[in-house]
């Protein structure tokens, strides 16, 4: 993984440049990590339950909704709740696309998936407080809907 390579190179460079500073950096890393760790555990618990209640097959079935408006509503709702890594989401969307699910619905789904995070809320709340976190997620949802709508216009799935 490139990411680990880069981290290792920087860490080694830092160590040769200044041992004390590097140890301090690692201490900071550890402290920051353990501070937020409980919230990560909460998130993992929520994710594990939501994956069970909303497995891929069910998500595919919901997104296959024929009514465009209804499909959009479902897409952004599921997208806001679920948490999925990209390497699962895009192949899934590729398949759904072949099955005839509109680009607009898939765009709403992926964008809300990325911008709105109900399951990451425990972590977000720890840094931003509940109110600000909710406002940020609300704006994210709005953005997802706008992105989806414009995608629909450009792919001529909807007309003004």
């Amino acid at each position: 993984m490139i990411f680990y390579g880069v981290t290792a190179v920087l860490l080694i460079a830092s160590f040769f440049a200044d041992k004390k500073k590097t140890l301090k950096a690692l201490k900071i890393s550890w402290k920051k990590f353990t501070t937020i760790l409980p919230m990560f555990i909460v998130m993992l618990v929520l994710v594990s339950v939501s994956l069970y209640m909303m497995p891929q097959e069910i998500i595919s079935e919901y997104l296959g909704e024929k009514d465009l408006l209804k499909g959009m509503g479902i897409a952004v709702t599921v997208g806001s709740i679920a948490l999925m890594p990209g390497f699962i989401v895009y192949p899934l969307c590729g398949i759904l696309r072949e099955q005839g699910v509109p680009y607009m619905v898939l765009s709403g789904f992926t964008t809300s998936l990325m911008m709105v995070g109900l399951l990451t809320l425990p972590i977000e709340k720890a840094y931003f407080g509940l109110k600000t976190a909710l406002i940020r997620n609300g704006l994210g949802l709005l953005i997802a809907m706008i992105v989806a709508f414009i995608t629909g216009l450009i792919f001529m799935e909807v007309a003004l």
């Binding site: 990411f3 680990y4 981290t7 920087l10 950096a25 690692l26 890393s29 920051k32 993992l44 890594p85």
Partner: peptide, 20 residues
Amino acid sequence: LSMLKILPAAFILIGLFQVW
């Protein structure tokens, strides 16, 4: 497991950022 693949390196970078 998939998060543990990312988090340690991410937090090390945050620590390095903090001191440098």
